[in-house]
């Protein structure tokens, strides 16, 4: 018996900056985890991943990552994805830095 599908998002790194990005339901690449499309169906996930992988001019390393619904949108499940969504713990760099909180597309 195959394992039950758990919700996912599509994530990647922006080609130029390398910053972590998330695929939204309306086909944008957002810098914010909460704006990601939460994918609850396995077949739909595969379609979204293929769509993401084709965008080589914008992103690198598209993949599916575990996520769960939260009050403001999808939230990371694994600590690695939480770090990707926040930035390193030794400096206030990356997404946690002030000024990168606003919505931005690739």
């Amino acid at each position: 018996m195959s394992r039950r599908f758990t919700p996912k998002i599509v994530t990647a790194n922006a080609l130029v900056e390398g910053d972590v990005v998330y695929l939204t339901a309306d086909d944008r690449w957002s810098r914010h985890h909460a704006e990601a499309e939460l994918i609850e169906d396995e077949a739909h996930g595969q379609i979204r991943l293929i769509h993401a992988e084709a965008q080589q001019a914008l992103v690198v390393g598209a993949c599916l990552a575990e996520a769960r619904p939260g009050p403001n949108g999808p939230e990371p499940v694994h600590f690695r994805d939480a770090f990707r969504a926040r930035g390193p713990s030794n400096y206030p760099h990356g997404k946690q830095a002030a000024g990168i909180r606003e919505t931005g597309n690739v």
Partner: peptide, 17 residues
């Protein structure tokens, strides 16, 4: 591109190159 950038010391890490 990946093998070419690695030959020149450029990695893609968690948050950035």
């Amino acid at each position: 591109f990946r093998p070419l950038r690695l030959m020149n010391g450029l990695y893609l890490q968690l948050h950035a190159y």
